[in-house]
């Protein structure tokens, strides 16, 4: 079954169209990575799926239901979660408060959920009361991912999860992503450092100039020499 289906979506900003009719399918349980040059519309697509930008044409289906143009808090309620590329934590809030915000729409106790996140990212458990703004890039990325996982989403969207991470942490983050996926969460990733990501991915898509121009399985895309030269730094 298709978890997320994008049909001919046109979107962008007031005076600039960025996506010129994107089609994309993210099957249930898979990891899909989108690669492409800067300005190709990768982040714009994520913002559009999440209701931060309104598409001017096309449809977005989540588990066969139309979610086109829903406001972000409604999208969250449907079971999608999104970790933006930068500024993805609340700096003046503590780690624990950041995670609590992830479950804002829930009522009642969050102890079990918090515990679950701290097990996934032990570093965070050790520093629950520390302000997120004082954390290093890697810890911040974990806070952001933890926040997004608080609601047990069915689809997790990650915009450049490994940007600004040290190599050992990059490896850790991708291990976690694989583990999260194992647990049944479908994952959509946008990456520049795409080699690690494509290794994990069932499917890889190439965006350029606001259109999807190529699609293949992750490893096949990684092996494709022309794609490598054009988009993965050879």
């Amino acid at each position: 079954m298709s978890r997320l289906t994008i049909e001919r979506v046109v979107s962008g900003y007031a005076d600039m169209e960025v996506l010129h009719g994107i089609d994309l399918c993210v099957p249930e349980g898979e990891i899909v990575t989108i690669i492409g040059p800067n300005g190709a519309g990768k982040s714009t697509l994520m913002k559009t799926i999440f209701g931060l930008l309104k598409p001017t044409a096309g449809r977005i289906l989540f588990d066969e239901e139309d979610i086109t143009g829903l406001s972000p808090d409604r999208v969250v309620r449907r079971g999608l979660a999104y970790v933006p590329q930068v500024e993805n934590v609340f700096p003046s809030l503590t780690i624990q408060e950041n995670l609590e915000m992830g479950a804002f729409i829930l009522k009642g106790h969050l102890r079990d959920r918090l515990q679950h996140i701290y097990e996934l990212f032990p570093v965070l458990g050790d520093r629950q009361k520390a302000r997120a703004g004082k954390m290093s890039g890697g810890e911040r990325q974990m806070v952001a991912m933890g926040r997004a996982l608080m609601l047990d989403p069915r689809l997790l969207m990650l915009d450049e999860p490994s940007a600004a991470l040290a190599p050992n942490l990059t490896a850790t983050i991708f291990e976690r992503i694989a583990a999260i996926n194992e647990a049944g969460v479908t994952i959509l990733i946008v990456e520049q450092n795409a080699k690690e990501s494509l290794k994990l991915s069932d499917r890889g898509c190439v965006f350029a100039g606001g259109l999807k121009c190529f699609e293949d399985s992750g490893p096949a895309l990684l092996a494709n020499e022309e794609i490598g030269r054009l988009y993965l730094g050879g």
Partner: peptide, 14 residues
């Protein structure tokens, strides 16, 4: 406080 930190992030957080 979260919204004052970053409104866009607050929205995508739900």
């Amino acid at each position: 406080r979260a919204t004052s930190d970053n409104t866009a992030l607050a929205r995508v957080t739900g």
